[in-house]
Each structure stands twice: as structure tokens, then as C-alpha cells.
């Protein structure tokens, strides 16, 4: 008999805790509804009394990037017709309201100096606020595939309580295990986890297998690029372009990409590629050798890259040479 797994031991306890918390939150919700006294839940609130959703470090964030062109279009529409759909905000302890859904509408109102905006005010804790914001992002028609994928993963991190520095890695490997488990019936993962993952993906119309093979690789971008997308300084389209450019130009291109259109950026990348010397030397920050090697190796090991190398005898031979060279270096070290 193998030893019993702790997750299995604690399954009823976990259910009891969750049920207790669920009851508590339902009670709070009912309490909140009572205090509203049946009044209409929408209010005009001052645009200046609103700020973006603020969440604790490490919780993950809803999307931050907003296409300037689309923002202009929305502004025009608001000037003409006003805000047609109320935004969702939560009250914060400092008296401000934080946007949970409708950040774009709020920003537009701010920029065209509208004094108030119609909002639904709902007290939400950090987890619930993030959950609602992520779901709203995924359902948005404007969202790019990267942002959508990123948001689905964030939601899954939230549901599976995956935290810490390695949370991106953890959730990706968990999804891969889930897919393998689904295909082979084996793996170091609980059936309940697989079910939760599938149910989450299913609620947005994704299948586990295709999400892992088609969507996850989108996030296999160099970390600084992904970071710039997440903080909202870089558009997902430009991010994809930069990721295909040589790694030593990434830092410079991220700076360029923040201002440039897709077309301008593409031009700049081809200029860089065609000239042996970088276009603007002063703005390129030298990346340490260790990082450069690591980055190249990371790409080489990716399954898709490796398959190509493996299928090409010439490339395979050169990889063998690299391997020999590395071995020699290590031997020299003693």
C-alpha cells in the first residue's frame, strides 16, 4: 500500500473550509443587498474620484494595454452618445473607487473632462475583484490573443491558488501535466485539478489540448517583452514582432515599440537586420554574455525549434560541435 496523499486526506476538510467561506461570503452579499434598501444600484460618480484597480504585489493584474486608436474611437463615441453601459467599481479604503470593469470607458471620460460617469458600485475583495476583471477582459471583443491567454492563465492561478515567483512556470507546467494526464491517464496531477482546469477553459470555449499547444507558446516570449505587455507599455502585436527579432536588440526595440506603430517597428527591425551595425548604438544596452547564451539556449530547447534542428543534418552537426565545444570548456575548467 502506498502512503496516502495529503491532498486526498484533506479533501473533505478543504470542502468544509470552502463551504464555510462560501456561506460567510453569501451572508456578506445578502447583508450588502439589504443595506442598499432596494435602491437602484447605478450611480453617477465623479470621474476624478476613480482610480485603476490596485491589487497587492504578486496577485497578478488584469490587462493594462489599451490601443490608442481604439481609445480615440471610444472617446468620439462617448462625446457623441455618452457612456452607454455603466462601469463596475469597488470602493477603496481611501475613499476612491477602483475600476473593476470599464477602465477604458473611465479613461476616455477623464481625457475628455467628463465630470461624472455612471457606475455600479460593488464592494469586492481583492480576489473577487481580480476574478471579475479577468473574466471581463476575456469576454471583451477588443482583447488580443496574448492578453486573452494571459488572463485565462491568471484566472487559473487564482482558482488553483498558485502564488510566488515561479507562478508563471508552475501554471504552465501544470497545464502541460493536465494535458498529458488527459491523453495518457498518467501523471503527477489530481483528477480534480484536471477537472477544474478543463471547466475553466471550457467556460471560455477552449479545449485543454488546443489551449496548451496553440495558446501557451504565445507566452513563450522573452521575459522583458512579456513584462512590457503586461504593464501596458507595449502592444501585443509589437511584442510578437520584437520577439522574432535578434535577442540583443530586444531592449532597444521595446523602447522603440512603445511609441511606434506596427509598420514603423517592422521597418526598424528590418533596418537593424540588414545593417551589420546597430542603427543607434548609444541606445543599445549591452546584455551580459551569460544572459545572451541562456536566451539562445532557451529558444534552441523549445520543442518546435529542436524538431527543426533535429530534422536538418547540417544544423544537427553544428549543434554537436557546440556540445563538443562546451564539453572542452568544462574539461579545461577541471
Amino acid at each position: 500500500m502506498p502512503r496516502r496523499d495529503l491532498n486526498q486526506m484533506f479533501a473533505p476538510a478543504t470542502a468544509a473550509v470552502e463551504k464555510s467561506e462560501e456561506i460567510a461570503s453569501l451572508k456578506a452579499e445578502i447583508e450588502a443587498l439589504k443595506t442598499q434598501n432596494g435602491q437602484e444600484n447605478f450611480q453617477e460618480i465623479p470621474v476624478n474620484g476613480i482610480t485603476s484597480l490596485r491589487l497587492p504585489e504578486g496577485m497578478g493584474q488584469p490587462r493594462k494595454y489599451f490601443d490608442p486608436v481604439k481609445l480615440e474611437q471610444l472617446k468620439t463615441s462617448i462625446e457623441k452618445h455618452g457612456v452607454l453601459e455603466p462601469i463596475l467599481v469597488r470602493p477603496a479604503s481611501d475613499g476612491l473607487y477602483e475600476t473593476v470593469s470599464g477602465e477604458r470607458r473611465w479613461r476616455c471620460c477623464k481625457e475628455i473632462n467628463k465630470p461624472t460617469i455612471l457606475a455600479s458600485i460593488k464592494p469586492l475583495n481583492d480576489t473577487d475583484a481580480l476574478e471579475v476583471a479577468l473574466i471581463a477582459t476575456i469576454h471583451s471583443e477588443e482583447v488580443s490573443t496574448i492578453e486573452e491567454t494571459d488572463s485565462v492563465l491568471s484566472l487559473m492561478k487564482l482558482y488553483l491558488n498558485i502564488k510566488g515567483d515561479q507562478r508563471d512556470k508552475k501554471i504552465k507546467s501544470l497545464l502541460e501535466s493536465a494535458k498529458n494526464f488527459k491523453q495518457t491517464g498518467y501523471g503527477d496531477i489530481e483528477q480534480t485539478t484536471v477537472d477544474l482546469v478543463e471547466a475553466t477553459l471550457g467556460s471560455f470555449g477552449f479545449k485543454l489540448g488546443s489551449f496548451v499547444s496553440n495558446r501557451l507558446p504565445l507566452l513563450d516570449m522573452a521575459e522583458p517583452i512579456l513584462e512590457a505587455v503586461r504593464t501596458g507599455t507595449l502592444s501585443p502585436t509589437n511584442a510578437l514582432l520584437i520577439n522574432r527579432a535578434p535577442v540583443e536588440h530586444h531592449k532597444y526595440l521595446i523602447q522603440v515599440g512603445e511609441e511606434a506603430t506596427k509598420h514603423e517597428l517592422r521597418q526598424r527591425i528590418s533596418e537593424i537586420k540588414s545593417s551589420s551595425k546597430p542603427v543607434n548604438n548609444s541606445r543599445i544596452i549591452e546584455i551580459p554574455l551569460r544572459e545572451r547564451i541562456h536566451e539562445q539556449y532557451r529558444i534552441v530547447r523549445q520543442t518546435t525549434t529542436w524538431k527543426k534542428i533535429h530534422g536538418n543534418p547540417k544544423l544537427k552537426k553544428r549543434m554537436e560541435q557546440i556540445n563538443t565545444l562546451l564539453k572542452e570548456i568544462l574539461t579545461d575548467l577541471g
Binding site: R3, L6, M9, F10, A13, A16, V17, K19, S20
Partner: peptide, 19 residues
């Protein structure tokens, strides 16, 4: 292990009883 298993039951009991 036996105590851990018993703890799981205690926690389950705690939340159910409390409510």
C-alpha cells in the same frame, strides 16, 4: 501520517460545527 489524517478530520469538524 495517522495524526495528519486525524487533523484533516478535525479541521472538517471545526468548520462544520462552527457554522
Amino acid at each position: 501520517d495517522k495524526d495528519v489524517d486525524a487533523l484533516a478530520k478535525l479541521i472538517e469538524w471545526f468548520y462544520e460545527k462552527r457554522d
